[in-house]
Design a protein around this nucleic acid. Structure first.
Lengths: 108, 108
DNA sequence: GCTTACGGTAAGCAATGACTTACGAACAAG
DNA sequence: CTTGTTCGTAAGTCATTGCTTACCGTAAGC
């Protein structure tokens, strides 16, 4: 939901692998774990973190739980990043202007 | 440089505060630490991580070191995020199509 | 030269976190 | 009703990490 949780969620390499696995389509917990070098409970714990970050959601399907990517968490990240990016560029521009001013004063 | 380091760098709240402090303009290490609830060495260590992630750079200025935001690290993050975002939306769309197909088949 | 300001690094510590195995709950199948 | 899958959670372990204090190098000012 918040970008804080999103950053924390994506900081772990295994968690990114889980997300990338789900990106190719919905998968059960066991199916995800089968493609990763960690145990199934580990995947379960990662999915919990990802879900709290709003990056995945799940639906029950018999005794299995099918997880899929939820764009909401990604959207939060994009918002934060875009804002920060714009401000960074603006500040960058301002610094250049400042340099030019100094140059003018010390020039002729 | 890589998005891996960028994610790890931004995962820590204090590190984000450091970055946000620099966003308003270049600052010395001491100046940054003065606005944060942690010690100056802690800030130094955070700046090291941010620099390795390509998100800040510094220039010597007498005995002081002035840090400023480097857009390169942010760019790496944006690239990763945009790609992931596009693929997520595509997969989302595909799932909806799939649902429609099922609906058709079970309908009269 | 001597002192003072500034910042990076080392060492140590407490907290967080990613993983494992073990167990229990829920649904399906026979 | 019993058995077998599938999954979440608890408990414990080991590594990582963010922080502190202490120390050292370096540039500027007297």
């Amino acid at each position: 939901m918040t970008y804080e949780q999103a950053f924390r969620a994506l900081a772990d390499p295994t968690r990114r692998q889980v997300l990338e696995a789900l990106q190719k389509g919905p998968k059960s917990v066991g199916a995800i774990a089968a493609g990763l070098p960690v145990s199934r409970p580990a995947v379960s714990q990662h999915l919990k973190v990802l879900k709290e970050a709003g990056m995945v959601d799940d639906k029950a399907e018999g005794t299995r739980r099918v997880y899929y990517v939820d764009p909401r968490g990604l959207a939060a990240l994009r918002t934060w990043l875009d804002q920060f990016w714009d401000q960074a560029l603006a500040e960058f521009q301002r610094q250049i202007e400042e340099e030019n001013q100094k140059q003018k004063r010390s020039d002729p």
